[in-house]
């Protein structure tokens, strides 16, 4: 009988938010077309580590399983990416899994991305359309612009760009590339444009635009190919103009 092929995972585990991380190795039976998540599911089925000791199932986060939700991001063989889209056949073994270090670890590979959602609040990355009466239809968006904006809208707040950014860390309060690009997306929308200056104000607050040092790792690692550095430069220009308006302008109407 042919020997059963196995896949080796070396996983950085952590039992609770404050406990010390440690590495644990698992060998799981190989199946065709496995992704990292199916490997983690095998471990969950039979949580016995490579030394044959009984362990606990590895915790991880996941949702859509088709690389659009961003929940399953982790560092795989040194590269931050979505584990659902990481195919075992395309990875060098042993496969090393670590939680993304920029975020607080909840348990094992589960991280807390709340700071990204706080950042989206800081830059008001939404379009306010609620009123006490029907506001009527908004202005139309040209199709060409819609197609362009669609690329920016692919951001799934996965956190990979923050993980790769040298300026996003515990010593700085930089919000990271993703929310800056989102501010650009909503400022480009014909209705969102009406609140453009409020988003720029958010970008000029502490931890905003000026935290960017243009290492430009973000645009290299973004799984959605979002032109993050172009977004940052575009917001830099808009914020420059806004700050001049604020200082030299006659009033605060804009």
């Amino acid at each position: 009988m042919a020997e059963q092929k196995t896949v080796t995972f070396i996983i950085t585990r952590q039992d609770s938010p404050d406990s010390t991380p440690y590495d644990e190795t698992f060998n799981v039976p190989y199946r065709k077309n496995m992704n990292v998540i199916s490997g983690l599911m095998e471990i969950r089925k039979n949580p016995v580590n490579a030394k044959g000791e009984k362990s606990t199932p590895v915790a991880w986060d996941m949702n859509c399983l088709e690389e659009v939700c961003g929940a399953c991001s982790m560092v795989i063989n040194g590269v931050p990416r979505q584990s659902c889209a990481a195919l075992v056949d395309e990875l060098e073994q042993p496969i090393r899994l670590e939680p993304m270090s920029t975020f607080p670890v909840v348990r094992d590979l589960v991280i807390d991305r709340e700071r990204m959602f706080d950042a989206l609040k800081q830059v008001k990355a939404w379009i306010p359309i609620d009123g006490s009466y029907d506001l009527g239809p908004g202005p139309r968006m040209p199709e060409k612009k819609r197609q362009w904006a669609y690329e920016l809208s692919k951001c799934m707040t996965c956190g990979v760009c923050l993980e790769a950014c040298p300026n996003v860390n515990d010593k700085s309060n930089f919000i990271g590339p993703a929310p800056i690009s989102q501010a650009r997306l909503f400022n480009a929308h014909p209705t969102g444009e009406m609140n453009a200056s409020e988003r720029l104000e958010g970008l000029m607050e502490e931890g905003g635009l000026v935290g960017c040092g243009n290492a430009q790792n973000c645009v290299q690692v973004c799984p959605k190919g979002i032109p993050l550095t172009t977004s940052i430069a575009a917001m830099n220009r808009a914020a420059t103009i806004q700050s001049f308006k604020n200082f030299f302008g006659s009033d605060n109407a804009h």
Partner: peptide
């Protein structure tokens, strides 16, 4: 101050701009 708020990662992210960021 800016130098000390960065956490350089050129080894992991070996891109030209990241090197220039570090060298700056």
């Amino acid at each position: 101050y800016i130098v000390f708020t960065a956490k350089n990662n050129v080894k992991r992210y070996n891109f030209v701009r990241n090197w220039l960021f570090f060298l700056q």
